[in-house]
Computed example of a mutant assay.
Amino acid sequence: MLNLPKKVTIIEVGPRDGLQNEKSFVPTDIKKQFIGELWKAGFQEMELTSFVSPKWVPQMGDAAEIAVDCLNADARNIVLAPNRKGIDRVYSTDCQAVAVFVGVSNSFNQKNINKSTRAGMAELAPILAELKGKNYFVRACISTAFYCPYEGKIAESDTIKLCQEFIDAGVDELSVADTIGMATPAESYSLFSRLKNLFPHTLLTAHFHDTRKLALANIFASLQAGIDRFDSSAGGLGGCPFAPGASGNVATEDVVYMLDRMGIDTGVNLHKLIDAIEVVRPHLSRPIESGYYRLHTQIF
């Protein structure tokens, strides 16, 4: 028999991870409308924005305004902050959930944060202790957990070692990412089965990109491994400016449709989700190509 949960939590990452790689700046008022419509669709956790340098990620230049105007008091409002400067900006907001990130791959980290994996973790260690001391929810994003665009296949043991370091630092959640969309269902099942056995008391979230159209298959394999939390992006938006060849995140609407058809509750209303996508679609640099969206717009 299939090993399927009755309920799955979808963490919507479109406003942050989805929009960060857009070529032209999406107007702030449009972002606010987009986020507002996504909340209406029923999400209980969302990545709203990122406190990064607008020089390197121009799309996140309005992070402070988004973090003030888009909070949902009944949900988990997540903002990404990669370093001390970003964390200090978080403290000036009412956000109580922070995402940090480090890649397993040294080469990826050098391109992304100009530090090795070890140096990145050393810098984060006191910040993580501080955040937990202030009772923040901390989400650790593990980039290049399967493959790296510069180093190729990542050893499963290396990913587990980095996850263990974050667990030892007291994080609440691990979001483990197939950053360039090269993982296979067998690899996903293997890694997430081991993580589930090793860290049964930690929130484990799978984050798949759909570069090779394997994201849904990887999600299904992860379900079999006991994972019931998944990152996804409305409209399949996203990519990574520091990971050549990485396409968008798996489309939320495709994930929700698949899970709905399997009898798994997500709490997300597909029609309202499409309404949210329609808000941002005219301002995007590429068309929405998810299967559910294309079928829905043809029919309706």
Rank of each mutant, 00 (worst) to 15 (best):
I10T: 07
I11F: 00
V13Q: 08
L19E: 04
N21E: 12
S24F: 14
F25E: 06
F25T: 14
V26N: 07
V26H: 00
T28M: 10
T28V: 15
I30A: 09
I30G: 07
K32P: 02
F34R: 01
K40N: 15
K40Q: 15
A41V: 06
A41D: 08
Q44M: 12
Q44R: 14
E45H: 05
M46I: 08
L48P: 06
Q59K: 12
M60W: 11
I66G: 00
I66N: 08
A67Y: 10
L71A: 09
N72R: 11
N77T: 08
I78E: 00
I78C: 03
L80E: 06
L80I: 13
N83F: 08
K85T: 15
I87P: 05
V90Q: 05
Y91V: 12
G103K: 01
K115E: 09
K115M: 15
R118A: 15
M121V: 07
A122N: 13
A125Y: 10
A125G: 11
A125I: 09
P126I: 03
L128R: 01
K134T: 04
K134V: 02
K134M: 13
Y136E: 10
A140W: 06
I142A: 04
T144Q: 09
Y147C: 14
G152M: 11
I154R: 01
K161C: 03
K161I: 00
K161Q: 13
L162M: 10
L162Q: 02
L162E: 06
F166S: 08
D168P: 02
V171A: 08
E173W: 04
E173Q: 14
L174I: 03
V176R: 01
F192L: 05
H201V: 11
L204A: 07
T205H: 00
H209T: 11
T211Y: 03
R212S: 14
L216T: 02
A221T: 00
Q224F: 04
G226Q: 00
R229Q: 14
R229Y: 13
D231R: 02
S233H: 04
A234H: 04
G238R: 02
G245A: 11
A246C: 10
A246I: 07
A246H: 09
V250F: 05
V255I: 13
Y257N: 13
R261T: 15
R261Y: 11
I264D: 00
D265P: 02
N269H: 14
H271M: 13
K272Q: 15
I274T: 01
D275Y: 06
A276M: 05
R281H: 13
P282W: 09
P287D: 15
P287L: 13
Y293E: 07
Y293S: 01
L295R: 10
T297D: 12
Q298Y: 13
I299F: 12
I299K: 11
I299P: 03
